[in-house]
């Protein structure tokens, strides 16, 4: 076999392997989605969004859990995006190559692997025990702890891959460094930053353990952040492991809602990014 033919054959094998990998990933998704859909779709009815969670045997929906999740995820993501993007920017721009930068990056990676339940315990010590009460604030902060390291990591990776020529061009025109970063680098890394945010959100949308010790959960509707708040993951956790069919059904509906929400936000985020890119 000539060398060229060998190389082409090798490449062919590589293509097949990559396709198989994609196929495996997609089939895993299909299998899990199939389970989610077959168990969750049947349970969706008009009451899911209008009624609060019921006791077993009573009719009800998931309204309080949905609203609670939205509020706490929004709070968590707001904190995570602000701190995460700023910290990631520092790591990529001002702190690149410095010793302190190495330390921060390293510890950020360590924080990513923190089991969510331990983060929940820490926030409990910080925001629940001293104030003698569970609250939505504590839940949001716990979620922020989980999302921030992911945002930082991804932001740093994306920003450090932006071409240095962009920065040099901006500064050569007399712009300050902050200006260059905000108006040029961030803009060109927009889709990457969006991915960072979406990954962070995907991580926290399904987290149960940290919320158990911070926001506790609430059987009733509550949009007051200083009181215990319901959330979809904690409700799913309680209902899925119960003995009652109607509660289990609601649990699968809740799980389906989370998956759909993440997909929806993914698509919306990409569409928005594409539009601003064009303009």
């Amino acid at each position: 076999m000539t060398r060229a033919a060998y190389r082409r054959a090798f490449n062919g094998v590589f293509v097949v392997l990559c396709s198989i990998a994609t196929f495996i990933a997609l089939s895993a998704l299909v299998m899990i989605l199939w389970t989610l859909l077959s168990k969750g779709l049947g349970g969706i009815d008009g009451m899911i969004f209008t009624h609060d969670q019921p006791a077993p045997g009573s009719p009800g929906g998931l309204r309080n859990a949905i609203v609670g999740s939205l509020i706490m995820c929004a709070l968590g993501m707001a904190i995570a995006l602000v701190i995460g993007i700023l910290a990631g920017t520092w790591l990529a721009e001002y702190g690149a190559g410095t010793k302190y930068g190495h330390v921060v990056r390293f510890f950020n990676d360590v924080l990513i692997s923190a089991p969510s339940i331990l983060i929940g315990l820490f926030v409990y010590e910080l925001l629940v025990a001293p104030f003698h009460g569970f609250s939505g604030y504590a839940g949001g902060v716990a979620l922020a702890f989980l999302a921030t390291p992911i945002v930082v990591r991804t932001t740093e990776d994306i920003l450090s891959l932006q071409p240095g020529a962009l920065r040099e061009a901006g500064m050569a025109l007399g712009a300050s460094r902050a200006f260059v970063i905000r108006k040029i680098i961030w803009k060109s890394a927009r889709t990457g930053l969006l991915t960072a945010g979406l990954l962070g959100f995907a991580r926290i949308s399904g987290e149960t353990a940290p919320l158990l010790f911070t926001s506790l959960g609430n059987q009733f509707y509550n949009h007051n952040l200083s009181q215990p708040m319901a959330s979809l993951p904690t409700t799913i956790f309680q209902f899925a492991l119960s003995a009652y069919d109607d509660w289990q059904r609601l649990a699968w509906v809740g799980a389906l809602l989370i998956a759909v929400a993440v997909l929806f936000i993914n698509i919306v985020g990409r569409v928005l990014a594409r539009e601003t890119h064009r303009s």
Partner: peptide
């Protein structure tokens, strides 16, 4: 989407 599925 696989990333968005809750861990439970």
């Amino acid at each position: 989407l696989l990333a968005g599925i809750p861990s439970i």
